[in-house]
């Protein structure tokens, strides 16, 4: 479930990046790489778990699924927070800089 939610987040971010490309002032590309990287790593985790459990892997208990879904949503929230922090620190549009500095007339 965590893998599934992360893959959906990665796909949505990539579509958003393509829509705004090639300008990409919002640095959505960073978010895409982050979610795709995590998806690939969880895919490896899933393969190892499948090798251990077999078909049972696809029929998780309801409570496990709920916990994994909660984790997946938390991962997406954390990824978005990290992206917002990078965006505000890098400030590609200069909004923060302009807000902090007042021009002399």
């Amino acid at each position: 479930m965590t893998l599934l939610i992360t893959v959906f987040a990665a796909a949505v971010c990539t579509a958003l990046w393509y829509r705004t490309a090639p300008k990409s002032e919002m640095r959505i590309g960073i978010l895409c790489w982050m979610f795709w990287g995590a998806s690939l790593m969880w895919l490896v985790d899933a393969v190892f778990e499948y090798a251990e459990l077999g078909a049972e892997y696809f029929t998780p208990a309801a409570q496990d699924m709920l916990n994994d879904a909660f984790l997946g949503l938390s991962v997406v929230a954390l990824g978005l927070t990290a992206w917002i922090v990078i965006l505000l620190v890098k400030d590609p549009k200069g909004v923060i800089r302009d807000k902090l500095l007042k021009k002399n007339d």
Partner: peptide, 17 residues
């Protein structure tokens, strides 16, 4: 770099979880 750092960061969160 972004894929490795991003993936490792989110996976580390899963391990904290």
């Amino acid at each position: 770099n972004y894929m490795l750092w991003g993936g490792a960061f989110l996976l580390a969160f899963e391990h904290v979880w």
